[in-house]
């Protein structure tokens, strides 16, 4: 599947929409916003207490379409990663055809910020 088709898929049929139990100590919650246009995104991760691997991720985004698409992509991407790997999220996607539509500037960082916020929330609750 071409890169952009894959992304379209994430908008038309966003994966991982919903919530995890906020009070669960293995859950980290990140809430971020883009004030330029009033977008708000909540992203949650659930971490396996033994392996420190992210075993589930959910999001809820109120905002423009590409913010929703990127939240969906981000939650797919972090699943199965260790929290350290997820922290160094990078766009190293290899694409053959390098001509793609652009993204809104704030959308490109929103999902990344949300993951980082969720991880730091998880870490702050598991400091011992």
């Amino acid at each position: 599947m071409a890169y952009s088709e894959k992304v379209i898929d994430h908008y038309s049929d966003p994966r991982n929409v919903g919530s995890l139990d906020k009070s669960d100590e293995n859950v980290g919650t990140g809430l971020v916003g883009a004030p330029e246009c009033g977008d708000v995104m909540k992203l949650q991760i659930q971490v396996d207490p033994v392996s420190k691997e992210i075993i589930d991720a959910k999001f809820k985004t109120f905002g423009c379409g590409s913010a929703i698409a990127s939240s969906s992509l981000a939650t797919e991407w972090v699943k199965g990663k260790s929290i350290d790997e997820a922290m160094s999220i990078q766009n190293t996607e290899i694409v053959e055809e390098l001509s793609l539509p652009p993204v809104k500037i704030h959308c490109s960082v929103l999902a990344e910020d949300a993951i980082k916020a969720a991880i730091s929330d998880y870490k702050s609750r598991n400091e011992d």
Binding site: L31, V32, G33, P35, E36, V40, K42, F62
Partner: peptide
Amino acid sequence: DERTLPVGFLQQMFNMQE
């Protein structure tokens, strides 16, 4: 800082959206 919001405001907005 172009992204500041009043304390607790973002959470409030999220709740209102829901």
